[in-house]
């Protein structure tokens, strides 16, 4: 057991837990944040993506120990932001959502990418999504949505 302190969606929390728990499980089982999903358990599909210090990481590969002292934003926190609203609108308008299991991870990937590069080319968007697998859409509508959000949300990122 170890005491691990971090910020989750703006709130500082301390947990006394096994440090070798996957952070994904901590979020889902201990903290009831189920927006991050397990698709593969080995960092391949990106359904478990979260923002760690503002950047996308796979929470299934993150031991709880590594989160100590860091800032975590999950889809539950991100959905309270204006940027989220812009991406949500674009995802809806471009038909970027089918089954939805990958979608929260896609939103996290989009945020992480746009934060670095507010005006990405299509090719840059594709590479920004390279760690997020979607089996339904063939990605093009997701790419269109991110392009649209970047354009309509100019100044937000």
């Amino acid at each position: 057991m170890a005491d691990i302190t971090f910020t989750l969606n703006g709130e500082r929390i301390t947990l006394r837990e096994e440090p070798n728990l996957r952070f994904l499980d901590v979020l889902r089982e201990k903290l009831n944040h189920t927006g991050a999903k397990e698709g593969c358990g080995e960092g391949e599909c990106g359904a478990c993506a979260i923002l760690l210090d503002g950047h996308i990481v796979n929470s299934c590969l993150l031991p709880l120990a590594s989160v100590d002292g860091r800032d975590v934003v999950t889809i539950e926190g991100y959905r309270m932001t204006e940027r989220y609203q812009m991406l949500e609108k674009a995802f809806i308008e471009e038909g970027a959502v089918q089954c939805g299991i990958c979608t929260p991870g896609m939103m996290i990937a989009a945020e992480s990418m746009l934060r670095e590069n507010p005006d990405p080319t299509d090719e840059e968007i594709r590479h920004g999504l390279a760690g997020n697998l979607c089996r339904c859409t063939g990605y093009n509508m997701i790419i269109a949505a991110i392009r649209r959000a970047a354009k309509e949300g100019e100044g937000l990122w």
Partner: peptide
Amino acid sequence: IALLASPGLRRV
């Protein structure tokens, strides 16, 4: 690095 794994993995 640009072709290595994915953005989430490259971060850590």
